[in-house]
Simulated scan of single mutants.
Amino acid sequence: MSRRGHPTGPTGPVVSRALTLLDTFSTTRRALTLSQLAAAAGVPLSTAHRLVAELVAWGALERAEDGSYHIGLRLWELGALAPRGPGLRERALPFLEDLSQISRENVQLAVREGTEVVFVERIAGSGAVPVLTRVGGRFALTATGVGLVLLAHAPADVQDDVLGGPIASFTEKTVTDPARLRGMLADVRTNGFSISDRQVTLDSLSVGAPVHDQRGQVVAAVSLVVRYGSVSPHAVVPLVRTSARAISRALAEPY
């Protein structure tokens, strides 16, 4: 099984090729021609034509007037059923909005998928510092406030995998030393919050806190991203932790 869970076995080749075609799309490649899809997926044009036709018929892809293809609404409809995506977002949104209104800063909600962060929601504050994240986007676990929280509470094998491989660097302040990162993760578990100081951009820092489910497992993280120098990170820790606890209580209630 591949990193994104593409299946193997009797139906593996067909399903894998279809998923590979879908995986070709990104924020910078929102519309692709049939030839581009075939080349990116590494399949013959005839195969891509057949698979794309099936995906269009099902609703996973849509064809534009200029002949290019883009992701279809059917995938969005299915994605809305994911409990760790929109379901989590629906429970958390009132508290994220409260945090945004109080702070007027960037508020983020994220989950871990494998060795990456996936952002479920982001609310941009008025006049807040620009951020590199987007809803549905992925990012390194080691650099962001939410990522440090999720990595700190990830299984040991995930931590070993992340810290044992190449660690992405975004600024001169990005921590890439595995030993130092392990110390930071231990502090997150002890203190109940994380601080990412100028690790993603030099003009911002973020404070993150864990969100627990009814079993006490960390299933998400919430963070506040502020402009560096505008406020002490420890001054916003209580706000972030309060929001995280409120979301945790909401997740424990019957759906």
Rank of each mutant, 00 (worst) to 15 (best):
Gly136Cys: 02
Gly137Phe: 07
Arg138Val: 07
Arg138His: 13
Arg138Phe: 14
Arg138Tyr: 14
Phe139Lys: 11
Phe139Tyr: 08
Ala140Tyr: 03
Ala140Val: 08
Leu141Tyr: 05
Leu141His: 08
Leu141Gln: 06
Thr142Asn: 09
Ala143Phe: 01
Ala143Gly: 02
Thr144Met: 05
Gly145Trp: 00
Val146Cys: 10
Gly147Met: 00
Gly147Arg: 00
Leu148Asn: 04
Val149Ile: 15
Val149Lys: 12
Leu150Gln: 03
Leu151Gln: 01
Leu151Glu: 00
Ala152Leu: 10
Ala152Tyr: 08
Ala152Gly: 12
Ala152Val: 03
Ala152Met: 09
His153Pro: 00
Ala154Glu: 01
Ala154Asp: 01
Pro155Glu: 11
Ala156Met: 12
Ala156Arg: 15
Ala156Asp: 14
Asp157Phe: 14
Val158Ile: 14
Asp160Val: 14
Asp160Asn: 08
Asp161Val: 11
Asp161Ser: 14
Asp161Asn: 11
Asp161Cys: 10
Leu163Tyr: 12
Leu163Trp: 12
Gly164Phe: 02
Gly164His: 07
Gly165Glu: 12
Pro166Glu: 15
Pro166Gly: 13
Pro166Phe: 14
Ile167Leu: 10
Ala168Lys: 10
Phe170Asp: 02
Phe170Tyr: 14
Phe170Ser: 04
Thr171Leu: 04
Glu172Met: 10
Glu172Ala: 10
Lys173Gly: 03
Thr174Pro: 10
Thr174Trp: 07
Val175Asn: 04
Thr176Ser: 07
Thr176Leu: 02
Asp177Tyr: 07
Pro178Asp: 06
